[in-house]
Simulated scan of single mutants.
Amino acid sequence: MSEAYVLTAEARERVGKGSARAIRRNGNIPAVIYGDNQPPLSITLPSKDVTLKIHAGGFMTTVAEIELDGKKHRVLPKSYDLDPVKDFVMHVDFLRVSAKTEVTVNIPVHFANEETCPGLKKGGVLNIVRHDVEVTCPAGDIPEFFTADLEGLGLGDAIKISSIALPDNVHPTITDRDFTIATIAAPAGLKSEEEEEAEAEAAPAEVEVIGEEKEEGGEE
């Protein structure tokens, strides 16, 4: 679980597109805090602080504390908008949470022991089906990432969600099947061990037969 961080906000009295543009011109970002059966709060946040948190990774899965007028609001980012041309942050929505709040989040998957994976050492390719997994869990116990161990996996093997150790209070939203996270795929043209062994055994036998035919022909 990532550690919570603090952002200092100011109240936003006016809303609308004109107000939002003025806020962004002053180096801030308009945002909203909602949820927990409380009225939504319209706020502004320093653009630099929010942008740094987004680029640092884990922004959508890390609980934050927003300090507003001396009061701290415990929140989880739910969405943010980027300018389609200049790619700067335009708006952020935050959900109020407590330690008991159940949230649905996407947790990234990291892969371990790629350098020792037998299938990859033979020329196989790690085919990632899911870069992250959607789960439900308490807001105070959101995992930073899941680890998929490739140790001992050969060509054609698959990593299922059941192969990943999940905390007891973290549950995948897909519950009707043991879905695939990644596979060790053989690249096109790569022969299997069985094919190579069969060809190695067959080659000497063919040479021996040809040699016998030539000897019989010489006797005649």
Rank of each mutant, 00 (worst) to 15 (best):
K121T: 06
I210S: 14
P77N: 05
K17P: 15
L82A: 03
L126W: 04
D149L: 05
E208H: 13
V207A: 07
P39K: 08
E102F: 07
T116Q: 12
G156D: 02
A205W: 11
A185Y: 08
E115Q: 12
G154H: 03
E216V: 10
R74E: 06
T44E: 08
I23G: 01
L150Y: 10
H55E: 12
F88D: 12
S162W: 13
S98C: 04
V105D: 02
A112Y: 12
I181V: 11
P187G: 03
T62W: 01
T62H: 04
A148L: 01
S2E: 08
M1F: 00
L76Y: 03
D69F: 12
P138Y: 09
E220F: 06
I210H: 13
G156K: 08
G211E: 02
Y34K: 03
V63R: 02
T44R: 11
E67D: 11
E134R: 06
L82F: 10
G218Y: 13
N169P: 04
A185K: 14
F59V: 06
V105H: 09
H55Q: 14
A185W: 05
P187H: 07
G57H: 10
G16H: 05
K72H: 12
V32C: 04
E194M: 06
V89I: 09
H171A: 09
I107N: 09
A20G: 08
N28Q: 14
V97L: 03
H110V: 09
T51G: 15
L190P: 15
K48C: 00
A20E: 01
A205T: 10
G218F: 15
G124I: 02
D132G: 13
Y5C: 13
T136G: 04
E3T: 14
V15D: 00
I54V: 11
P187S: 06
L68A: 00
E212R: 13
K160A: 08
V103P: 11
T104P: 12
A4H: 02
G27A: 00
P46H: 00
G18W: 05
A9H: 02
